[in-house]
Design a protein around this nucleic acid. Structure first.
Lengths: 350, 350
DNA sequence: CCCGACTATTAGATCGATCTAATCTATATT
DNA sequence: AATATAGATTAGATCGATCTAATAGTCGGG
């Protein structure tokens, strides 16, 4: 192993199969067979090649191999906001499952910028990504999504989706989650229930509101559009939305929030208004992020299991990569209601 | 140009420069010049080639180009925990800067598993990553890091680093941050100050404790080892550490926490113990994550600007990719103290 | 001693782009 | 008219691996 010192110290050309072939006294073909663990090669020959690999410090070139084999072991993961813990969990679940399956992740954060999204997806396509996992940026045009169906790689939308395309989808059943949450509040006697946060341009809001309305309707409660208060999906949005709701002529006694983060803001604003959460006013969040169990009182919320959704979308993509003829599926996963301490019966004087 | 039609309608083989050359009636070389925007080609010729690109739906193959040019436009980003908002911000800053520079990010989450880290780094190396950004998993062996210096691609450690290697580092000045925080508490009259959370196997803890000790020593305060309470760097760890500290014979009147998340737990535990934060007990966090301004009272903390650190580490890596002879730098960035509401003068009766 | 049936190995083409060095016009210079 | 110069294009080798089809070598059966 001492002669190898020289080779590794020279920072020159990289070591290739040809070098290995020369060093081991065999052909490139044989080296290639060894690299791919073919049973065709004789024990002793394999040993010689492996010794050369070790001695010369050979590094396999996956890009060259993929080029020749017309395959790819890269998957594109395009998320709109990784700093949102909900999507960070998703990304981690995705990457974990892809790595386990032998794929490597090309990851990008679009910051909800459709133009940047278009750019990175194009670049990843030029890199020969075997498939795409996409959480579409707000404002993504239908045309752009439709164009992707022409690509020869499968695309799975996660968490958000555009309604009119024939691409795969993996997402929580937002409508069901919202419905379960609203039903909980109805059971507790609440009749004026607000929906706080979100934006009807976003499918995730549309679906949640749909579930919320369905629950009210099933109980025979007349719809009051003023109770649906759009707002930014961050903590500040929650503060603002609650203030708006409380200022109504007939204010609500409970609120269903777009997300846990929005619910945090709502709790802040309730504290500021001197209202006791769970007694004077009830709140339910959405997502069940890590912080949800630590609010005071702990937040009742709808768990969507984003890490698990990451694993499932990876699995769905891998299925379609393995068999492109498989039709795209819409996998809508049921969430569950996590009852903690922010909900109580409707206050007496109401 | 009509015989080419057949090729595009068959969903079979991908379109290559050769197809474009045939369609435009020029050679592959000329097509290649057009693709790279060379000024050598005549206006009219370029037009013909571009028309063919459009018509045949050509997709550039970056891997093939990189193979031939012996270059790479991929950078490896290996983070130990993306679900930690502090690191998520880092990753977003990194990816943003890399994308702007024309690179694509191979991203992986190691979950603090050194073996998984080794595996993904090896895979990314085989993909020909032009450089590596690594936040080393806890328990990473020095040997493994040393091996990377033999790779022909630059490696930058971020946020955490192993002390004995000659790789680049970009990180906050944890010692300075902790020192500033401790000095703040000393100025307010506190004499018994605890350090809560972290683990001395982690350089980030070692450094913070060093800064904390330096501040005490400069004020002539004798060191009390019982006041340094190791704990998990999550919310539960903060709860536990504070309880331990309060149970001491001579309990502290203030605490410097390993991170904001630990500080959140500390605030939880203080509330549970019936102590008023900022009056009975003072707390300072570390990181300044998004939730820090929303605690009650808002958390005084040390801001490390992780997104900016992401940009800087990307810049440092790109410099070394551009000029490999450039020596690795250690870029230790000064943080700043963000004074909010969790600190007050030392209570009278103490 | 030849033939078929294995086992182990290999020469050479190939994946999709780029690069080098050469070729071929057309125009300007002497 | 011959030559130099610049502009536009191209043939063919090349990057690092893999694949196909062919070739040696070995052995037993007839």
């Amino acid at each position: 192993m001492s002669p190898s010192e020289k080779a590794s110290s020279r920072a020159s050309r990289r070591v290739t199969v040809t070098d290995l072939a020369d060093a081991a006294g065999v052909s490139r073909s044989t080296v290639s067979l060894v690299l791919r663990n073919s049973p065709l090669v004789k024990r002793e020959t394999r040993r010689r090649v492996e010794e050369a690999i070790e001695r010369l410090g050979y590094v396999y070139n996956r890009n060259a191999a993929n080029l020749r084999r017309q395959t790819s072991d890269m998957v594109a993961v395009v998320i709109h906001d990784l700093t949102n813990p909900f999507f960070a969990e998703l990304a981690v679940g995705l990457e974990e499952a892809l790595e386990a399956a032998g794929y490597v992740s090309l990851m990008a954060n679009t910051g909800d910028d459709p133009e940047r999204q278009r750019r990175v997806m194009e670049t990843m396509r030029e890199h020969g990504a075997a498939g795409f996992i996409l959480c579409p940026a707000m404002g993504t045009e239908t045309r752009q999504m439709a164009a992707m169906t022409g690509w020869n790689a499968p695309v799975i939308q996660v968490m958000r989706w555009l309604p009119d395309t024939r691409l795969g989808v993996v997402a929580p059943d937002y409508a069901l989650g919202a419905r379960m949450a609203a039903e909980r509040l109805l059971t507790l006697g609440h009749r004026r229930i607000a929906f706080l946060g979100g934006n009807e341009a976003n499918i995730a809001t549309v679906e949640r509101v749909r579930g919320y309305r369905a629950a009210l309707e099933a109980t025979g409660i007349a719809e009051d559009p003023t109770l649906v208060v759009p707002a930014a999906v961050n903590r500040g949005g929650g503060v603002e939305a609650l203030r708006t709701a409380l200022a109504l002529d007939r204010p609500p006694t409970a609120a269903l929030c777009f997300s846990d983060v929005v619910a945090f803001g709502t709790l802040d604003a309730l504290a500021a208004a001197g209202l006791a959460v769970g007694r004077d006013f009830s709140v339910i969040g959405f997502d069940d992020i890590a912080g949800a169990r630590h609010t005071l009182p702990p937040l009742t919320t709808v768990a969507v299991y984003s890490r698990e959704l990451g694993r499932r979308s990876a699995a769905a993509l891998l299925r379609r990569i393995a068999d492109p003829s498989e039709p795209p599926e819409q996998e809508i996963v049921a969430p569950s209601l996590i009852v903690r301490g922010t909900c109580g019966p409707v206050p007496a004087e109401a």
